[in-house]
Amino acid sequence: MLRNVSKRYGKRTVLHIDRLTIHAGRTLAILGPSGAGKSTLLRLLNFLETPDTGQIEYDGRLIVHGRLPLTTLREVTTVFQRPLLLDTTVWQNVAYGLRLRGRVEREAVVAALQQVGLDRLDRVSARILSGGEAQRVALARALVIKPRVLLLDEPTANLDPANVTIIEEVIQRLRREGTTIVIVTHHLFQARRLADDVALLMDGALIEAGSGEQIFQQPRDPRTAAFIEGRMVY
């Protein structure tokens, strides 16, 4: 739950949210035009940045940045728009999160690679993967640590349909298994397919948040309506 949270870069306030609740075990899609503050919100949710004002409450506890236990940080992870793999093998990349936690479980790595359909490429250098394969490795790397909260920052942008399908299948599985998921996207259809809840962000402000049906069927804010009907010019 976020209350009155804002983030500034220099003098520009890039994000200001009065109140946003992310429900455990549900999938939230964050929609909005480019520059709306979506990625900033994800970094705040992953405790990677400190809000300039306001409070973030996680699992009933107030988050105090700088004194955040590593164990809490490790319950949340992000898959970014770019895969950002380490310069080593696919296997080592996927195992990385486990190694950080001091436990490398072979089976878990194999299972994660199987889920993204890359178990045959485990010994290959991450450098020679295609864009889609690399993003699937990035997803497997997040899966393997079994996060309570998975943050996805436009994970399928610039990917071909086959790769999009594989990644969406994995997200659907996690959703069924009860992982809390926040996915930033500007594909309306992807939001419809994947999300229980939807939030619309514009110019750093939260326009509207609610369940998927409510937002798509009966948007309260005219800007939401304009956005989902594709009439918004941005």
Binding site: L48, L100, I145
Partner: peptide, 12 residues
């Protein structure tokens, strides 16, 4: 960006 990604994966 790699730093941020590693941190997000839970690296101290």
């Amino acid at each position: 960006a790699l730093r941020v990604q590693l941190r997000a994966l839970g690296a101290s």
